[in-house]
Design a protein around this nucleic acid. Sequence first.
DNA 1: GTCTATACCGTGATAGAC
DNA 2: GTCTATCACGGTATAGAC
Lengths: 216, 216
Amino acid sequence: MKEKSTSEKSERILDAAEELFARHGYDGVTMRQIAAKAEVDVALASYHFGKKVDLFHAVFNRRAELLSASRQEVLLASKEQASGGTQTLEQIIEAFLLPLKLAQESRDPGWRNYLAMVAYVMASPVWNEVLMPNVYDKRVTEFIDALKAALPHAKEEDIHWCYHYMSGALALTLAQTGRIDRLSGGKCKSSDFDAAYNRMIPFVAAGFRKVCGLDS
Amino acid sequence: MKEKSTSEKSERILDAAEELFARHGYDGVTMRQIAAKAEVDVALASYHFGKKVDLFHAVFNRRAELLSASRQEVLLASKEQASGGTQTLEQIIEAFLLPLKLAQESRDPGWRNYLAMVAYVMASPVWNEVLMPNVYDKRVTEFIDALKAALPHAKEEDIHWCYHYMSGALALTLAQTGRIDRLSGGKCKSSDFDAAYNRMIPFVAAGFRKVCGLDS
DNA sequence: GTCTATACCGTGATAGAC
DNA sequence: GTCTATCACGGTATAGAC
């Protein structure tokens, strides 16, 4: 516990930035707010991460590789597990979503903040094209390839649009806006990830089947 | 064309603010940027609309009533048109989405900006609860009631979660992020609303049926 | 009433001194 | 590695022109 000052402070800065960016977006947060929440001097964030935009990138990328690797792993495992080589739609979708669910249910609340930040990036016209291509688009391409294999007669456009719908449903789930709590009068909770994912898989699978034709 | 000076400038301010808020969010836009785009003096926006947050509200509310009224109309018409009194899922969903599609296809590009701004509000944890309840939640409640009637055996939680997925798919469509263009290599276009809505209706209907049980 | 010019004060980001 | 000084910018109020 002696030499935690260095790495601990820069981690604290990332954590604080993550939490604030997730809720208020890039422009809704100031370096001073981040420093205050991290309980460090304002200039320390610049010292470690450079400009505000670089800090934003650093926060986004910190967990991106980790999450993406876990995703690829699960996708591969699911593919190998499939007997005839063809996975069911449900298996593919589940493999795509499982790492996100696990991350959100993690004991580390940073993961929830991070995923809300990802939702912000996904929905933003400006950040989307800056940050998504680097790491996440790769996994999406693999996912879409698996879908093509499972839906051999589907038109490519149909698959892409269906992925887009799924992506939207996912983003709103990650965003944790609390709207479903309000609309349902408390019957559903934004924080209930089990409920969200358990229903999302059959919902999305049925949509794919309907729009992309019967799978083999 | 003689006395447009008054209303025209304040309309220009709303239009400019709408466009900028849609793309950059509330905090990503300054009063000076808005004034510059509208080609008016900085202080004029404050004169007409008060504080920045009030301008944001004004932009949001300007088209909200119009859109909401048109939505209710279509929903009602669809209900009356149904012979046995019970609409199909597809009819209900189509009625919910049609006014949005029409708005987006309008000749007035302001509608596209407005709907992108609505998407921003929907996905934002802070604005969502401030702005959505006033006018849009009312229509959503009616929509959910219609769904309950069409899916009499469904559990309420299931319906709410399915609405949540649909809401996410819709929000990402309204947001116009351009991501589908990139992922599909240009095969699909964010701006192709016909494609987006034509597939969204069967996709969502199939998801509802799967998760909420067979409809009557 | 509608609009412009300008000034104020607070805050934010950043660089450079320590 | 830390803190302070600076400078630009943002939101808003005010005074006055048209």
